[in-house]
Amino acid sequence: MDIRKFKTSLYKEMSGMTKALGNPHRLEILDLLAQGPAAVEYVALNTNLSVANASQHLQVLKNAFLVESEKRGKYNYYKLANKQVFETWCALRRLGFIQNEEINKLFNDFRKKRKHLKTISTDDLVKKIKTDSVVVVDVRPEEEFKNGHIENALSFPLMELREKISELPKEKEIVAYCRGPLCMMADDAVEFLNQNGYSGSRLEKGYPDWSAGSLPIERDECNQRKEKGKTQGSIY
């Protein structure tokens, strides 16, 4: 093979991977799978897709070597192929905010409607946790919480927050987090907390970013056995 054919073959293979990323549903699926392994049905439910459509998108990602699958009973579970896939998604997300004004406009316009929404950086949250001045709540669905969560965080799924809010102390700041900066569950939670007399703020990023930074995490005991051998700092 001459050099030109060699380079063309390499770039063709690379373009196949990037082509798989060129779909909004598949990007959302990657963001969801960054929370941990999920069945096709769960992916469909959380991306507002039919099971058949979600399965097709997952197959495209699998054929591009971006996700892997395994059989658990009668269900197919999918997960990101490795931490480099999550890092690539984060880099693409950063590039979008840097280069695309429309992304910033959409994001900022949404946030402006929530005038009292306070955000907190990862570094600041680490400091506040050390001084025991905050309560950290995970507002993702319980299944994602079990896959992994910030150490000592409490599970308060957004759909249950109204019923469980009285369990939270009003004398401390409540920091809510969710899947990441493009996920709005924490925004909804903070707005509800503030409306009910709590001092609420949202973590700027989400659980996958926290975990990827090798910060303290916990997992459900059953999932710990499944993930035995993985080091802290993995995205799961």
Results as ranks from 00 to 15, higher is better:
1 M>A: 14
3 I>M: 08
4 R>I: 15
4 R>M: 15
9 S>T: 07
9 S>A: 11
10 L>W: 05
12 K>R: 06
15 S>L: 06
17 M>E: 05
20 A>H: 05
25 H>A: 11
26 R>T: 01
28 E>H: 07
29 I>Q: 03
29 I>A: 00
30 L>C: 05
39 A>Y: 03
40 V>I: 13
40 V>Q: 00
42 Y>S: 13
42 Y>A: 14
44 A>E: 08
45 L>Q: 15
47 T>F: 07
47 T>N: 13
49 L>T: 02
52 A>Q: 11
53 N>P: 01
54 A>V: 00
54 A>T: 02
56 Q>N: 14
58 L>R: 01
62 K>C: 03
62 K>Y: 08
64 A>D: 09
69 S>G: 04
72 R>M: 10
74 K>Y: 06
74 K>N: 06
75 Y>W: 02
76 N>I: 14
76 N>W: 04
79 K>D: 04
80 L>P: 08
80 L>C: 12
84 Q>M: 11
84 Q>F: 14
86 F>I: 00
87 E>N: 06
88 T>P: 00
88 T>F: 08
91 A>E: 11
93 R>F: 05
106 L>F: 12
110 F>C: 05
113 K>G: 12
117 L>E: 13
119 T>D: 11
119 T>C: 14
123 D>A: 15
124 D>K: 12
124 D>Q: 13
127 K>F: 09
135 V>F: 09
135 V>Q: 12
137 V>G: 07
138 D>N: 10
139 V>T: 15
141 P>N: 14
143 E>G: 02
143 E>Q: 10
144 E>K: 11
144 E>M: 11
145 F>V: 06
145 F>S: 07
147 N>R: 13
152 N>D: 10
155 S>K: 06
157 P>F: 10
159 M>L: 14
164 K>L: 15
168 L>W: 12
168 L>I: 13
172 K>W: 05
172 K>C: 04
173 E>H: 12
175 V>N: 03
175 V>P: 10
177 Y>K: 13
181 P>T: 09
183 C>D: 14
186 A>Y: 03
189 A>K: 03
189 A>T: 12
192 F>E: 08
195 Q>M: 04
196 N>H: 14
200 G>K: 01
201 S>F: 00
204 E>R: 02
210 W>Y: 09
216 P>G: 00
217 I>K: 04
217 I>P: 01
218 E>S: 09
218 E>K: 03
219 R>W: 00
220 D>Q: 02
226 K>Q: 04
227 E>S: 13
228 K>F: 10
229 G>E: 01
229 G>S: 06
229 G>W: 01
234 S>Y: 13
234 S>W: 13
